[in-house]
Write a protein that binds this DNA or RNA. Sequence first.
DNA 1: AACTTTTAGTCCATAATCTGTACTTATCCT
DNA 2: AGGATAAGTACAGATTATGGACTAAAAGTT
Lengths: 380, 380
Amino acid sequence: MSSRGVRHDSMRARNLAVVLATIHRSGPHTRAALAERTGLTKTTVSSLVADLLEAGAVTETGAVRAGERGRPGVAVSLSGHRVAALGLEINIDYLAACVVDLTRTVRVRHIIPADNRNSDPAVILERLRGLAKEITAEAAAEGLRVIGAALAVPGLVEGGMLRSAPHLGWRDVRVADLVDVPLEIDNEANLAALGELWFGPRESDFLYVSGEIGIGAGLVVQGGVFRGTYGLAGELGHVVVVPDGPGCRCGGRGCLEVYAGQDALLGDLGSVTELVRVLESGDEAALEACRRAGHALGVALTSAVHLLDPGTIVLGGIFAPLFPWLSEPVSAGLETRLGQMRGAPPALAVSSTGSDAAVLGAAGLVIQQIIAEPAKLLGL
Amino acid sequence: MSSRGVRHDSMRARNLAVVLATIHRSGPHTRAALAERTGLTKTTVSSLVADLLEAGAVTETGAVRAGERGRPGVAVSLSGHRVAALGLEINIDYLAACVVDLTRTVRVRHIIPADNRNSDPAVILERLRGLAKEITAEAAAEGLRVIGAALAVPGLVEGGMLRSAPHLGWRDVRVADLVDVPLEIDNEANLAALGELWFGPRESDFLYVSGEIGIGAGLVVQGGVFRGTYGLAGELGHVVVVPDGPGCRCGGRGCLEVYAGQDALLGDLGSVTELVRVLESGDEAALEACRRAGHALGVALTSAVHLLDPGTIVLGGIFAPLFPWLSEPVSAGLETRLGQMRGAPPALAVSSTGSDAAVLGAAGLVIQQIIAEPAKLLGL
DNA sequence: AACTTTTAGTCCATAATCTGTACTTATCCT
DNA sequence: AGGATAAGTACAGATTATGGACTAAAAGTT
């Protein structure tokens, strides 16, 4: 709730953002079409587009004939040639980075396998800094200037600081000076949700369920992630499934994570790939684990639907490859439990962005910021 | 997400709103203080304040000395003398209406007891129309012009239409032409949450839990109510407490409502007042019912806290008079279950607005709109 | 082939609004 | 009484959007 007044310069900044956002949301437009949609005059739009062209945010991409007669307009599209966003991720067993241009095209991508459990933050961050430098240079070779970055971490983030990442064994780590552009830090599940929004087929509001070692969720509302008062919202993994169930590492009992976390699903198996293999061969213990997890997910998601009212539920992370075995029990659970309360339960979908969701979402967050505040980030 | 461009008139409209909102949030200000806080110049603020004075939204209320020396400034405060908001409520056993001025002072208030269960919408709405007319006239006698209204109903609202109100026995009722000013309709729990925000001691984000026959909740985030994709968010009453518990009227099993709804709490007793009396006399069955309800609330709220991350939890409706008996088991449940996950569980508080919360919140919603868009609603 | 219609985009004078400096007003301090 | 300090106002100037006139480019019409 900005309580700052609007001045001439912020009026123009806002109008630049409106034009850019319109192109971003609805594809290439002629200046005339932009004027129509934004309610601004053709003159004003021309002037705004001129600034955006100069800043390299948009390009003119040939003539389009609007109706049958009249002078054809010139389509103005987002430019993939000048500015770009850097996405970074620290996870349990890898470091990842990608550079994405304004058209949401992934231009460069790197993943370094690593065992980051109980690691020294300084060492890992130094390695990540190197990776960022390298990938920024590769982007520069393609003519792209990275103007912002975001970092996804598997833990709780508050005030730009990593408060705790149990699986990394990190506490209160300040991430600064990693790159020489503005850097955002956010939770893996939140950014994976944005990844699904920006690089998947989603259009509207949805709840992204991120199955990793823990289970997180990111609720996307009106193009942004709902974070709650302290940024701790979306902890689906600790929603209560059985009030007197087995103890959970969080101190609670019968949390979803106990039934559907990676450890519960894998049992003795070493990896999700392996689990999928034995599921395909019809292994009864594995099938039963999936049924149990699906049932628990159905219960927790029922509570989540009642509280959050998402339009769609997207299963991601390790739940994505397991979707064929989870989908049935989860949607059955939702259907019988939600029953009379609403027309139909939210649609259940599988994530399309795979394990890249979080890095991609990190880059997407930056692109979102560029489009929301072009004047600030493009130096207009 | 407005995609409309900013023009000169919308710039001014925004600045009027910024000034008014600053006074509303932080009390009377001199023009100089407003300039400081909004980032606008003194000149601009003077001009904006002049318009707001003329529209009757603010008044000058005497001199204030800022520092030690210098000319004293003139405090500009919200005016309670010209414009007002109408709050309306249809509930199971009464109709209510109130007129509130911009200073949040309740100027007129009426409650008509009535048995609205399984009633004819047309009849009740006609009665409400009469009540609205009457109270508007009484406000006019005090010099107040009602410029907007909102209606609280115990049911699901979608697209300005009452989809279903099970306890009234209403379905798909269109409420139009009830009054001759713009009318909003919303769910009782959502508006009660706003009532707590506007007329209670709350400042920041909180989850308002509304105990009535059903149990609803309204999450207040950044001054507004979080509604979800279809406006169905906050159905705390059907969060799963025991996955295989007793069936609920919603079709699910073991919902919170089964354990902590009015029916479960009252047992054979006729009213909450009566329940309080027997609790005070130490009736063991009643105490046990409260403990059970408190335990169930603790479980459901744990899930809610993990998903929504509210700063505070406010118990309202019938939970308010029962707070002395519920507070202990609820906060114990939250504390042990949330344990390691966050610093401390959200504070647990009792609602101060009593059974008026929803009507008051309805009026508060209108005032919120006046303050957010003064140019539109005051005709500037 | 020339003329008309239609739509896109630009030019330029005008209008709306905010800014900044100078000025007036009101109070306290010495 | 004179000076210092802060609030509020006046007015010229700056910024940005508007609106109508103009140019540009295409298709239809005669």
